[in-house]
Design a protein around this nucleic acid. Structure first.
Lengths: 230, 230
DNA sequence: CAGTTGATTGGACCGCTGGTCCACTCCCCT
DNA sequence: AGGGGAGTGGACCAGCGGTCCAATCAACTG
C-alpha cells in the first residue's frame, strides 16, 4: 500500500500469492456482507488489494465466481451432513441443512436454480437420491421423487431467501407481515385469503419448510404403495 | 387501435401514445426474443422508437418493468385457467398452465422467485389455495400445503426454464443430456447415479413435473388422513 | 380564435459495471 | 548470474440504468 503512491514506477509484486481459492473466499465474504448485487469484480479485487485484471487469470468469469462461491457453501453443508440411520430423518436433515445455509447466505438461494447441472445441485441430488433409494424408491419413481424434492427444496429456499433478504430483522418482519396481511385482506375478498392473511402473523418459515418436506415424503411413500413405517 | 380516443382528459402527445401498457408489452417482446439479459432500457425504448427518458414517466424502474411483464404473463394464464369440478384435476391444470407459460417465457421462471409477494405469485397462491380448500385442507395445514405446492411449482419451473434456456432445440438437447449422463457416470461411482444417468435420456420434464405434483397431492391427502379416492 | 400552460417527450449526460489488454515485476530454474 | 515466463494491476472500452432538462404541442382558458 505504501509503495503504491509513487507515480512513475509500476507497483511492486505482492508477497502473498493470489489463488482461485483465495478469490472465491473473498467473493463469499463480499456476498455475505454486501449481497448479490454487491458482488462486483471491483469489490472483490479491492478486498484482495489487487488490480482487477489479476483475478481473470484464476477465474474466467464473474458468473463462474458466483457459481464457485455457491458450490463452496453447499459443499461444506453436504460434507457436514452426517448420515442418519433413518432415511426420512436423513432427508429432513439434508433439507434443513440446505435451508439454513441459504438462510445464512441468501445469495446461494438465487444462484442454485440458475443452472440445474452445476456441481452444487448435483451434490444435493446425489445425497437425496441415496436416501430415497434407502426408502425403497427406484427407477423412474426415484427420478420423479428426487426431482420433485430437489425442486421443492431449491424453490422454497429461494423464496425464503428472497423474503429474508427483503426484511432483515425480526421486528421489521412482524410489521411487514402485518402490512402484507392487511393488503391481502383488502385486495382479495375471498374468505380463504383472509384466513391465510390472519395466519401470516404466526408464520415460521423454517417449520413450514419442514412441513413441506414431510408432505413430500408422505406422498412418495403413499404413492409407491409401500409400507410407511411410523 | 389507431385512435384510442379515450374520454381521458390527459393528452396523448403522439398519435400512438406511450403508455405503461404499451411499454410492458414491448418489454415482453424484448424478453421473449432476447432473453432476460437482453432486457435493457435501451432495447425497450428502441423497440418503441422513443427516447430513454420517456419511459420513466410510466415505469419507475427496470425491475418494476420486469415484474410487470411477469405479472402480465401469469395473469393471462390464471385468467384462462378454467375451473374444474375435481380439485385435483384443477390443481394439475393450474400447475401445468404455469409450467407451460414459463416454458414459453423462461424469464418468468427466474423472475417469480425473486419476490414472493409480487402480485403474480399471490395470484398463484390464491388459486391453488382455493383448490386445496376444496380438497378439505384448512388452517395451518392449508398454509403448509399451499406453501409447499407454490414453492415446488416455482422451483421446478425455474429449473426447467434454466435448463431449457441453456439448450434450445431438441437434437442438441439429446446430445447435451448424453454428455451430462457420461459426466455423471464418470464423476460419481455410486451405482444409483449411474442408473439415474441412464434414465436421463428418456427424460420428459413436463411429465416429471406432473409426477411431482401428484406426489404432493398424495402427500397432502395422506398426511391429513383423508380419503384418497382413486 | 389566440395565449398560456403543463404534461410529455427524447437525447445528453453521469457514474458504474464486467471484461480485455499489455507493460511491467520479480520468482524460479538453469 | 542471468534470463524467461508466470503473475500482476492499472488503463481502457463498450454498455448499462437512471437523472435531468430544454423543447414540444395538445388541451384548457379567456
Amino acid at each position: 500500500m505504501s509503495f503504491m503512491t509513487t507515480p512513475a514506477p509500476r507497483t511492486p509484486r505482492r508477497s502473498d500469492a493470489l489463488s482461485r481459492e483465495r478469490i472465491v473466499e473473498a467473493a463469499i465474504e463480499v456476498l455475505d456482507t454486501a449481497g448479490e448485487s454487491g458482488l462486483t469484480v471491483r469489490a472483490v479485487t479491492a478486498h484482495l488489494s489487487t488490480g482487477r485484471g489479476a483475478i481473470y487469470h484464476h477465474v474466467t468469469n464473474k458468473d463462474e465466481l458466483l457459481a464457485a462461491a455457491a458450490d463452496g457453501v453447499i459443499s461444506q453443508v453436504m460434507a457436514t451432513a452426517v448420515g442418519d440411520e433413518d432415511p426420512r430423518r436423513a432427508v429432513r436433515a439434508l433439507a434443513l441443512g440446505i435451508f439454513d445455509a441459504i438462510d445464512d447466505h441468501p445469495w446461494v438461494g438465487t444462484q442454485l436454480p440458475r443452472d440445474p447441472l452445476q456441481p452444487a445441485v448435483l451434490q444435493i441430488w446425489r445425497n437425496l437420491g441415496v436416501q430415497l433409494h434407502h426408502l425403497g424408491v427406484a427407477g423412474t419413481a426415484l427420478s420423479d421423487a428426487g426431482s420433485a424434492l430437489v425442486n421443492y427444496i431449491l424453490g422454497a429456499a429461494a423464496q425464503h431467501a428472497a423474503g429474508a433478504r427483503r426484511v432483515p430483522d425480526d421486528a421489521a418482519r412482524k410489521d411487514h407481515l402485518g402490512r402484507i396481511a392487511a393488503q391481502w385482506a383488502q385486495l382479495d375478498a375471498h374468505p380463504l385469503m383472509r384466513e391465510s392473511a390472519a395466519l401470516l402473523h404466526e408464520h415460521d418459515d423454517r417449520a413450514q419448510f419442514l412441513a413441506g418436506v414431510d408432505i413430500f415424503l408422505a406422498g412418495v411413500l403413499h404413492r409407491k404403495g409401500g409400507t410407511a413405517p411410523l
